[in-house]
C-alpha cells in the first residue's frame, strides 16, 4: 500500500520510521552498577541495580542484549490496556484511539528484542496486530469519503507515525486531485463529514475541541 509514485525524497522508509521510533524513551531496570553514558544524544545514568531509569529504546535494547538490564514495557503495552484500546477502536467508526505516535515500531522492537520482559507476549502481539488492522480499515474507508471534505486541509487526530507514512501518498493525491478539480459545493455538509476527518475550521463558528 505504501505509495511508490511519490517523489522518493519525501517518503520515509520503514527503517527510517523505526530509526525515529528508537529515540522514544522507555524504562529499564539495570541489574548492575554502570557509569554514566555521556552520549551525543544525551546523558544517561549513572545506573544502579533495581533503580528504574529512562533511556531511548535503542539504548535499552542494546543494554539488555549486553545483559545489563531488563526493560519495563510501557503501560499501554499491557494486555488490559491493549484490549481496552482494541474495543474502543472497534466501537468508534469515526475516530482513532490515543496511542503513542510510534506504537507500531516500539511494540515490534520490544517484542523482538525484549521477549522475556513482556508478560503474555503472544497476546500482546496479537492485540497490537488487531489494533493495526482495525485502524487501517478505518483509514481505508475514510479515504473514500474525501469528496465530502473541504480540499484545503484535513486534520488527522491520533494517527501514528507508520500509519501517516503509509497514508501520506494517498491522502496527498486525493486532496490534490480534489483541489485541482474543485467542487461547487465547498461548504461541508456537517451531516456527511465523519468526525475524524474534520475539515479546516469554519471561520464563522468556533468548533469545540473534539471529545476523545
Amino acid at each position: 500500500m505504501a505509495g511508490q509514485s511519490d517523489p522518493h525524497l519525501s517518503l520515509f522508509s520503514a527503517e527510517e520510521v523505526e530509526f525515529m521510533a528508537e529515540d522514544e524513551m522507555v524504562e529499564i531496570v539495570p541489574n548492575m552498577r554502570m557509569d554514566p553514558l555521556n552520549l551525543l544524544c544525551g546523558d544517561y545514568g549513572p545506573f544502579f541495580p533495581q533503580m528504574v531509569t529512562q533511556v531511548p529504546v535503542w539504548l535499552a535494547i542494546a543494554l539488555k542484549k549486553r545483559g545489563k538490564c531488563t526493560i519495563r514495557p510501557p503501560e499501554w503495552m499491557s494486555v488490559e490496556s491493549l484490549t481496552r484500546i482494541l474495543e474502543s477502536e472497534r466501537e468508534s467508526q469515526d475516530s482513532f484511539q490515543v496511542l503513542p505516535f510510534h506504537y507500531v515500531e516500539i511494540s515490534r522492537l520490544l517484542i523482538d528484542h525484549a521477549r522475556d520482559d513482556i508478560p503474555d507476549i503472544y497476546m500482546v502481539r496479537s492485540l497490537v496486530e488487531d489494533i493495526r488492522d482495525v485502524r487501517f480499515h478505518k483509514i481505508e474507508t475514510s479515504l473514500e469519503s474525501f469528496e465530502d471534505a473541504r480540499s484545503s486541509a484535513v486534520r488527522i487526530k491520533n494517527l501514528s507515525a507508520m500509519e501517516v507514512n503509509i497514508v501520506r501518498p494517498f491522502v496527498g493525491r486525493a486532496l490534490q486531485a480534489f483541489y485541482k478539480h474543485g467542487s461547487p459545493d465547498l461548504v461541508p455538509n456537517p451531516d456527511k463529514v465523519p468526525n475524524r476527518w474534520q475539515p479546516a475550521a469554519d471561520p464563522v463558528q468556533k468548533r469545540p475541541l473534539r471529545k476523545r
Partner: peptide
C-alpha cells in the same frame, strides 16, 4: 479562509 491549527494535532495541508 482563516484556518487554525491546534497544537500537537497532525494535519494534512498544502
Amino acid at each position: 479562509e482563516p484556518f487554525e491549527m491546534e497544537p500537537n494535532v497532525l494535519y494534512f495541508v498544502r
